[in-house]
Computed example of a mutant assay.
Amino acid sequence: MFVHFHATMKAAKTIPSVLKYFLIISVYLLLFVSLQNRRSKTLLSATTNHTSSSSSSAVDSSDDLKIRHGYTNYDAYIQRQLNKTLNPKLRKIWTTRDWDRKIKVFSRFFDELKRENLLSNSSKSLSIGARVGQEVEALKRVGVTDAIGIDLVPFPPLVVKGDFHNQPFHNDTFDFEFSNVFDHALYPKKFVAEIERTLKPDGVCILHVALSRRGDKYSANDLYSIKPLSKLFRRSELVRVRKVDGFGLDTEVVFRKKETIQRS
């Protein structure tokens, strides 16, 4: 391009000044268009690579598990979750009129799990997405004293600050993990991987989920069967599935982490 430009400028000396001016302007325009085209291709390539990288970090949507779109970045997703967790009206409800009611329901769930030997008083337990800690308090009331919850907003002494996509705990920490916020996971694959990382071998994970219906406006995914969960829990075996009435969630899914990792 620049060789042609110099050649054109040399030839321009032999033609009238008006034509010379027009020729120079035309060459500059061609240079500008060429550079813009190169810049556009570079930006398109970078955007495509970034999108591919972001998509690969989450489980692909399928007929039975659909990831909701609309989040421009992870900070936007976190801020949306905080909008619910920090809502003063909701927090007042969770700590007053909902407090005893939810503790009673969770206590019945946990008592039944104890009778099935899926939970014991000596189980080191974690509640994921615990908000103000009703599940944690229920565990303590049924005799599981070593229990803690995590949420984006802490609620001492029952709940510590933590992102369930990146749990703030060491590997093989807990005997028992419970969550009823799977639908809030933007990256279900990472959500489950963190459970299996922090769960001890032979440890138990209980999920309460809603099947065949959309969650609330803060949900990041919609689940329509347990098949995706079975695929996500690669280091665990499915123990059982049953119907429950868990504050809008209708299905309880139980997984037990395998004692040894099977190499594929």
Rank of each mutant, 00 (worst) to 15 (best):
M1V: 15
T8Y: 07
A12D: 14
I15P: 04
S17L: 15
S17H: 15
V18I: 12
K20M: 13
K20V: 10
K20Y: 13
Y21P: 00
I24R: 15
L29A: 12
L29M: 12
L31E: 09
F32K: 15
Q36I: 15
R39Q: 13
R39K: 14
L44F: 08
S45D: 09
T48F: 05
T51N: 15
S53G: 12
S53T: 12
S54T: 15
S56G: 11
V59R: 15
S61P: 07
S62Q: 07
S62H: 13
S62N: 14
D64F: 10
D64C: 10
D64P: 08
I67W: 05
H69P: 00
A76M: 11
A76D: 10
I78N: 01
T85N: 03
T85Y: 06
N87A: 02
P88C: 06
K89A: 13
K89C: 07
K89W: 11
R91Y: 06
K92C: 11
I93E: 10
T96A: 14
R97T: 15
W99N: 10
K102A: 00
K102G: 00
V105Y: 05
S107V: 01
F109G: 00
F109R: 00
D111L: 10
R115Y: 05
E116G: 04
L118T: 07
L118I: 11
L119W: 07
L119G: 03
N121F: 13
N121E: 15
N121M: 10
S122R: 15
S125F: 01
L126N: 03
I128R: 02
I128H: 01
G129M: 00
R131V: 04
E135V: 04
E135P: 03
E135F: 07
V136L: 01
E137K: 06
L139K: 07
G143H: 06
G143A: 08
V144H: 10
T145S: 14
I148C: 08
L152T: 00
F155L: 02
F155G: 00
D163P: 02
D163S: 07
F164T: 11
F164G: 02
H165Q: 10
H165M: 07
Q167I: 03
P168R: 04
D172W: 06
T173G: 08
F176W: 10
E177N: 05
S179L: 05
N180A: 03
V181W: 01
V181H: 02
A185Q: 02
Y187V: 02
K189C: 10
K190D: 14
F191M: 08
A193P: 03
E194Y: 05
R197K: 13
T198S: 04
L199I: 05
K200I: 04
D202Q: 10
C205R: 00
C205H: 03
I206G: 01
L207F: 07
L207M: 02
L211R: 06
S212I: 11
S212L: 09
D216I: 09
D216Y: 07
K217I: 15
Y218C: 06
L223I: 14
Y224P: 04
S225A: 14
P228Q: 04
P228K: 04
P228T: 09
S236C: 04
E237S: 08
L238K: 09
L238V: 02
V239T: 04
V239P: 01
V241H: 00
V241N: 00
K243P: 00
V244Q: 01
V244F: 01
D245K: 08
F247S: 01
L249M: 12
T251P: 11
V254Q: 03
K257N: 08
I261S: 15
S264L: 08
S264E: 15
